[in-house]
Amino acid sequence: MAKPNKKGPVRTVNIHCSQCRTKLYKYRKGGKGALIKCFIERITEDFTEQLATCPQCQQVFARETMIRGTPALKMIGQKVFMK
């Protein structure tokens, strides 16, 4: 399969922890569907200290994986939401 477009989409969304409402990432998302995965190269601002862990409540909200040969975070259902 083809790799995702590096420049990616222009639209940015804020990703928050659903348990404590802490802001986690600012992310360039493509499409209008649910947030299932985040390509690490599309994260514009990272507010976490440890990868895929909320800095406030220490909840693990994603798993690190490779999708189409690119490092990504696969989101665990209902642990994050986007605005």
Results as ranks from 00 to 15, higher is better:
Leu73Gln: 05
Thr65Ser: 05
Ile15Trp: 00
Arg21Lys: 13
Val10Lys: 10
Pro55Ile: 03
Glu41His: 15
Phe61Gly: 00
Val13Arg: 06
Gly8Val: 01
Gln56Gly: 07
His16Thr: 06
Lys3Asp: 07
Lys26Ala: 13
Cys38Ala: 08
Asp46Thr: 14
Lys26Ser: 12
Gly69Leu: 13
Ala72Gln: 02
Gln78His: 07
Thr70Leu: 08
Arg68Asn: 14
Thr65Ala: 12
Phe39Asp: 00
Glu45Cys: 10
Ile76Val: 12
Phe39Arg: 00
Gln50Cys: 15
Cys20Ser: 04
Arg63Ala: 14
Phe39Leu: 01
Lys29Met: 04
Thr48Trp: 04
Ile43Asn: 02
Ala52Gln: 06
Ile40Arg: 15
Cys17Met: 07
Leu35Ser: 03
Gln58Pro: 07
Lys23Phe: 10
Lys23Met: 13
Lys7Arg: 09
Thr48Glu: 14
Ala62Trp: 00
Lys26Val: 15
Gly69Trp: 10
Asn14Phe: 08
Glu64Met: 09
Asp46Met: 08
Gln59Ile: 12
Cys20Asn: 04
Ile67Glu: 00
Lys32Ile: 14
Ile40Trp: 07
Lys79Trp: 04
Met1His: 10
Thr53Gln: 15
Arg42Pro: 04
Gln59Ser: 12
Ala52Ser: 11
Phe47Asn: 06
Gln59Gly: 10
Lys32Met: 13
Lys37Arg: 14
Pro9Glu: 08
Ile67Ser: 00
Ile43Gly: 01
Ala2Asp: 11
Lys23Arg: 11
Thr48Cys: 09
Gly77Lys: 14
Gln19Phe: 09
Ala72Pro: 01
Ile15Phe: 03
Ala52Asn: 10
Tyr25Asp: 04
Glu49Thr: 15
Lys37Met: 06
Lys79Tyr: 08
Ile15Glu: 03
Arg28Ser: 07
Lys37Gly: 06
Ala2Arg: 08
Lys29Val: 03
Lys3His: 14
Lys79Asn: 06
Lys3Arg: 10
Leu35Gln: 00
Glu41Gly: 09
Ile76Ser: 10
Pro71His: 14
Gly8Arg: 00
